[in-house]
């Protein structure tokens, strides 16, 4: 008797839960309707400028000749299907594999070592009390972002070149001249250092904005608990921007396949291909003098796919571990 009653209630509960789920969904939908209206301009933008041209990816699976048809679009349908021909063509080239390895290594270095630096800088800047000093420091640190890689490259060449200041110091201290730009064991570090120098200050902006959102009452509470400055940073500021940090990291993962094309294109040379040639520079070099649209599309697709996997993976892990995610 009692058993029967209990199953009844369970059934009932499930049923009513389902009903209330549906009710809730209907409620959410009704509540969402006005928000959908706000989404319209954004959706239109991506529809027109991103999704409409998306069919261009079929070029990667055809032997595309832009002059084959009456116009380039017509040429897409006229060009013959070749399936995975260009995909396979990529993988028989040993230099492409080398470029992929380099891309991952350089990107990983930039994420592991380079990513935390703006966070630390932002925390440090936030601790400066004098408003004037703080503003000047902020302004100065974001200056390098505005200098193009061509100029930054020349600058680091002056600094780290064989007759640069660094080598003069090394030699005066009894060392031997290091060819930082021609030595595979140094080159990646040069890339890392210059990218940190150029972008770290700029990277602090997001975190500084996030810090402004922390409730000052939390700091007051911490002070009342006699927390010192380090403890305040650790227990109040850092948790306050953790969501932003995680989000920035996930977004960064979505850009792994570009290990810094603009930078490397300027700074590398043939003696450091083994350590510095990335997918972007390799494709650029190979593409010289020929117009292989299909091959280019395939490489783009490959990059997108890896970025997608990494970003979704990052988002998934973050949701599981930190309960923070982009979606």
């Amino acid at each position: 008797m009692t058993v029967e009653r209990r199953t009844m209630t369970l059934k009932e509960a499930k049923l009513s839960a389902k009903r209330s789920d549906r009710r809730q969904a209907r409620y959410r939908l009704r509540r969402s309707l006005p928000l959908y209206v706000l989404l319209i301009p954004g959706l239109l933008m991506i529809l027109v400028f991103h999704y409409l041209p998306m069919y261009g990816v079929v070029i990667g699976f055809k032997d595309y000749n832009i002059f084959a048809g009456a116009n380039p679009i017509d040429a897409i349908s006229v060009s013959p299907w070749v399936g995975l021909k260009f995909w396979n063509k990529l993988w028989i080239q040993s230099k492409f594999k080398q470029a992929i390895t380099n891309t991952f290594i350089i990107s990983a270095m930039k994420v592991v070592i380079g990513f935390p630096i703006p966070v630390i800088l932002a925390l440090m800047i936030n601790e400066v009390r004098r408003t004037g000093t703080k503003r000047v420091l902020q302004t100065v640190m974001y200056l390098p972002h505005f200098i193009s890689w061509v100029v930054v490259g020349a600058l680091f060449m002056n600094l780290l070149g064989t007759s640069g200041i660094v080598n003069k110091i090394i030699v005066s201290m009894g060392g031997t001249t290091q060819k930082f730009f021609m030595d595979n064991k140094w080159f990646r570090w040069v890339l890392l250092l210059s990218s940190i120098w150029k972008e770290s200050g700029w990277g602090t902006i997001v975190y500084l904005a996030a810090i402004t959102g922390i409730d000052p009452a939390l700091y007051e509470a911490a002070r009342i608990d006699r927390a010192n400055r380090f403890q305040q940073i650790w227990y109040v500021t850092l948790p306050g921007i953790a969501g932003t940090v995680v989000m920035m990291l996930i977004l960064r993962l979505g850009g792994i396949m570009d290990a810094g094309f603009a930078q490397i294109q300027v700074m590398y040379n043939s003696t450091v291909y083994k350590s510095g040639d990335i997918i972007g520079t390799y494709v650029f070099r190979e593409g010289l003098g020929k117009m292989n649209w299909s091959q280019g599309t395939i490489v783009g697709l490959f990059n997108s796919l890896i970025n997608l996997i990494l970003m979704f993976g990052g988002n998934y892990l973050s949701r599981r571990w930190t309960e923070k995610s982009i979606w």
Binding site: A25, R28, L29, R31, S32, L35, L39, G42, L43, I46, H50, Y51, L52, P53, M54, Y55, G56, V57, I59, Y64, I66, P72, I73, I76, G254, W293, G296, T297, G300, L301, S304, N307, L308, M311, I326, W327
Partner: peptide
């Protein structure tokens, strides 16, 4: 609580990662 939020966010994120290239 936006109904279909995940779907919409995905729509946006996807086109950040994939592009149809220069021709179209």
């Amino acid at each position: 609580w936006l109904y279909g939020r995940k779907f919409f966010v995905f729509l946006f994120v996807f086109c950040m990662l994939f592009s149809g290239g220069m021709v179209p």
